[in-house]
Design a protein around this nucleic acid. Structure first.
Lengths: 145, 145
DNA sequence: AGTGAAACGACCGTAGA
DNA sequence: TCTACGGTCGTTTCACT
């Protein structure tokens, strides 16, 4: 991970489909060299190039973060929560909660159903719900500040 | 947003650099038609194709979610928090906190400095810190379940 | 790890249904 | 909004440094 690879990542954070040739010009490398580096970055999972979508525009009108307190094995509980398809994000944390999970769903009814489902997961002792009202910032281009 | 566009999105969630021709084969459309639809999806901000990186492998060893209680105008407070470069994610929520923000930084020292900085932002009344221990799930391909 | 060159495939603009 | 097609540009492979 040198400065050149960081410069390549920065280019791809702006536009994931930018051509290797164009990136090469920007960072001062041949097209083939850029391609090899990108390949390595993707293979080693430092970076992935993916489509990120806007939930609201795809008809998913409700999102929430759940703070969860667990009994017993926190990781096992977190992994059971992660297995639910409506959970798109799950992390074990140190703080007032043990686990934070994000859920995405169509409407209030679905949200309530999913929260109920999570509260019935083995190891879940208590949940707090933070319902999304307004997303103010979502950045993917930190690390190249 | 019809089923075909969803199929295209699904392809690009798997690999953001997949060729339009290959996507066309998969969804039963010509290369040009795929290209036009992708263009529209990106222009209308339904989707963006970007590099998503792994903080740990780029030397950012600490991440945390902050639950923030605000006085006065919550949106104004959230936007002041969003303006900080170490904050990569910020959302106004209904629940025990008013705002949830995610911060990414190099080490404990930086994390403490950033939390202190956020606590000094106008409108911030109280903060709770959830320090990341283990990320268990991070999906970008919901919406095509 | 990097370059350069030639063959191949992808992408883009335009025309037409 | 789609397909078809031709010109241009990007990507791939390979030999070489």
């Amino acid at each position: 991970m040198d400065e050149t690879s960081k410069a390549i990542i920065e280019q791809l954070q702006q536009d994931g489909r930018r051509s290797y040739a164009a990136i090469g010009k920007a960072v001062g490398l041949s097209e083939a060299a850029v391609r090899q580096r990108v390949q390595k970055l993707v293979d080693s999972k430092v970076m992935q190039i993916v489509a990120v979508t806007d939930p609201l525009q795809l008809g998913f009108k409700r999102q929430a973060l759940l703070g969860i307190k667990s009994t017993g094995d926190i990781i096992a509980t977190a992994d059971r929560i992660s297995a639910l398809p409506e959970v798109d994000y799950c992390v074990v944390v140190a703080g007032p909660s043990d686990i934070i999970a994000e859920v995405i769903c169509a409407n209030d009814e679905d949200l309530l159903r999913i929260i109920t489902e999570i509260r019935s997961v083995e190891g879940v002792r208590e949940t707090e719900t933070f319902m999304y009202l307004s997303l103010r910032k979502q950045e993917y281009n930190w690390g190249t500040r």
